[in-house]
């Protein structure tokens, strides 16, 4: 056989070999496409929800709704026959007071727990606490509402000698306990992300454990800790069921922690089932939805920006 023919045959087999797509190639493609679809679906769902809520509520919000009354009136009388009014001031006050109290409860608890788990606990203690905290985060909110109604309610009536125990205090404490686990987890991640070389450096200079935490670790993790608090606020703001059950659900601008209030979210949950589709009442509830959507979006976005450390000194 002449040499050139032989070389030709050889290069043919190499070309054949290079052009063969094996099973692995198809599996790889399929997985890439599948994962891509999964990833993009999150965006699609978010946009879809936004479009749905906006379509149902925006027409009413821009047309019929008296925006000034919406934000400044404390009269929420959507079912009034003669003169329905849609003022959410009292509802905003309800949500704000409950969320505010919840943060007063949750911030010290969750930061304390995170500092203990990340900086002080070791070995088995740390692992079991982490599991426990994650377990707490998984308790359904209706169970928390149940606790608010059947345990906290009589407890508050007894302890403070007040006629009703379903109030800002009750809902705030319940919501604080609900938000604390997720805040703990995020805060702990933030503390864990602080390089150990900082701790070692400070300890080698004679700093005590507490000095290390207070002067080095907490300042270094402050963006992540801020984000944890903001996500807790977002959680409290959007929570519905537990607040509906524990707050008393009375339209009221609270003047004391023992006043009953009604939250924005709880209003939608309680009323949407009774409204006629397309009615003004239906529209205003969706407007509330848009409002909630925008506020939680802003809170989460802020948390995200804070984590990434925008505005960090260089």
């Amino acid at each position: 056989m002449p040499a050139d023919v032989q070389a030709d045959a050889l290069s043919n087999t190499i070309a054949d070999d290079l052009n063969t797509r094996g099973r692995d190639w198809y599996v790889d493609r399929a997985v890439s496409v599948g994962v891509f679809v999964g990833g993009v679906s999150a965006i699609v769902f978010i946009i879809g929800i936004f479009i749905f809520v906006t379509r149902e509520g925006l027409g009413f919000a821009l047309g019929t709704l008296d925006v000034k009354e919406f934000f400044t009136s404390m009269n929420w009388r959507p079912t009034s026959e003669r003169n329905p009014t849609y003022g959410i001031l009292a509802l905003m006050a309800g949500t704000a007071s409950v969320t505010g109290l919840a943060m007063l409860v949750a911030v010290p608890f969750s930061l304390g727990a995170a500092i203990y788990i990340a900086e002080f606990a070791s070995g088995r203690m740390r692992e079991s606490l982490k599991v426990l905290v994650e377990l707490l985060a998984a308790i359904p909110s209706v169970v928390w509402g149940f606790i608010g109604m059947s345990i906290m309610n009589p407890l508050i009536i007894d302890m403070f000698d007040v006629p009703v125990g379903l109030s800002v205090l009750n809902a705030g404490v319940i919501l604080g306990l609900m938000a604390a686990p997720i805040m703990t987890t995020i805060a702990e991640d933030a503390l864990k992300a602080v390089p150990d070389s900082y701790r070692e450096a400070a300890e080698a200079m004679g700093a005590t454990r507490w000095q290390v935490v207070f002067k080095v670790v907490l300042p270094a993790a402050k963006n992540g800790l801020m984000a944890a608090v903001l996500l807790g606020v977002g959680r409290g703001f959007g929570e519905t069921m537990a607040v509906l059950m524990a707050s008393g659900h009375a339209i009221n601008i609270p003047t004391s922690p023992f006043d009953s209030v009604r939250a924005l979210t709880a209003t939608i949950a309680a009323e949407l089932g009774d409204t006629a589709r397309g009615s003004d009442h239906y529209g205003v509830l969706f407007t509330l939805g848009i409002f909630l959507f925008v506020v939680t979006f802003v809170i989460n976005l802020t948390a995200d920006i804070v984590v990434k450390g925008v505005g960090k000194k260089q």
Binding site: S197, Y198, E200, A202, A204, M205, G206, V216, P219, A220
Partner: peptide
């Protein structure tokens, strides 16, 4: 007190943030 008396420098520079 001991670590005040005995300072330490590490392999990788580790200034605090």
């Amino acid at each position: 007190r001991l670590r005040k008396e005995v300072g330490m420098v590490f392999q990788r520079p580790n200034p605090l943030p």
